[in-house]
């Protein structure tokens, strides 16, 4: 288990991580979400002891990582897939890392098998694509058969087969009782991979919740209706508990009503309904709604219009 206790990191006047206190538990795939600059990577570097916290502490199974006897067996991490000497081969990189803990060449071969890198593992790293680098980084993170697997943007650069593989791998590792901690900008991916979410914005914790709970709390009942009488429907069904919005002619969204409720209320009327769809909030929508106030780097979109 990873425990972050009042974890804070400042760079000059900028606070990258602000008093973060959370537990990342074994047996779960915990997704770590946040906009660019939210402090995800800084937090992950502090967990590994690469960056020193300004205040607070990180405990891995109750103690700092540096005090563990064999850190690679405790936590395996992929932070930057391209952080490998360009001239050395993938195999040399893995062997060099394995040797720090006296791990066998057999174990190196196992993680190479697992990540499907046999064909290129002897090539120099400078010839690796981003996807191959990601797989090498994942292989390195699994070398010590660790209790905690932490990956920063693990599907970045992977093809669809690779994305599905990482998803299944994360599920399997968590099912074995490991702590799996993944960051991603791909909300749709996280919805399929994580079962628990940590969301931060401007270094502060915004949510620490199971995915289902997050969706349930963030969702609202709404139904989209298409009809030649959309305006009449909007007027007839609007009430203190039902809000109707019409962004497109001939279509109305009824907030606060599910399709059954809409059907019941429209039954007495002789109106033509050509479309009726329940609206659910996606993880993407819920996430954007939650983090919107803390987005630091916002794109200009006017040129696209």
């Amino acid at each position: 288990m990873i425990e972050l206790v009042g974890l804070t990191k400042t760079f000059g006047s900028k606070t990258a991580v602000d008093n973060l206190t959370v537990n990342i538990r074994p047996g779960h795939v915990t997704g770590f979400l946040g906009p660019n600059g939210a402090g995800k990577s800084t937090t992950m570097r502090m967990i590994l002891g690469l960056d020193w916290p300004t205040s607070g502490k990180v405990l891995i199974d109750g103690k700092p990582l540096a005090q563990t006897r064999a850190p690679l067996t405790v936590i395996g991490a992929l932070l930057d897939a391209k952080a490998v000497p360009r001239q050395c081969s993938g195999r040399d990189y893995l062997i060099g890392m394995a040797m720090t803990h006296g791990l066998s060449r057999r174990r190196v071969d196992q993680v190479i098998d697992l990540t499907g890198l046999h064909a290129v593992i002897g090539n120099r790293f400078k010839t690796y694509s981003l996807g191959m680098s990601q797989r090498l980084g994942i292989a390195a993170s699994l070398l010590g058969d660790p209790e905690i697997v932490m990956m920063d943007e693990p599907v970045n650069g992977l093809d669809p087969e690779g994305v599905a593989w990482v998803r299944a791998l994360a599920h399997q590792l968590a099912a074995e009782g490991r702590t799996v901690f993944l960051s991603s900008h791909l909300m749709s991916e996280m919805a399929q991979t994580a079962d628990h979410l940590l969301i931060i914005g401007q270094g502060r914790l915004l949510a620490d919740t199971p995915v289902d709970e997050f969706l349930r709390q963030s969702s609202e009942v709404a139904t989209w209706v298409r009809s030649p009488q959309a305006s009449e429907i909007a007027a007839a069904l609007s009430s203190p508990t039902v809000r109707a919005t019409m962004d497109t002619p001939g279509e109305v969204v009824l907030h606060g009503l599910d399709p059954l409720g809409v059907g019941e209320r429209l039954a007495p009327h002789n109106w033509v309904i050509t479309g009726l769809t329940p609206l659910t909030v996606s993880l993407e929508d819920a996430y954007l709604r939650l983090t919107d106030p803390s987005v630091e780097y916002r794109s200009a979109t006017t040129w696209m219009r």
């Binding site: 074994p26 064999a70 803990h101 010590g144 490991r178 079962d195």
Partner: peptide, 18 residues
């Protein structure tokens, strides 16, 4: 993944030492 497992994982690289 199913619900939280009843067993907690322990690394099988037991003889590994830094």
């Amino acid at each position: 993944a199913s619900a939280a497992p009843v067993t907690r994982f322990r690394s099988r690289s037991g003889d590994a030492r830094l």
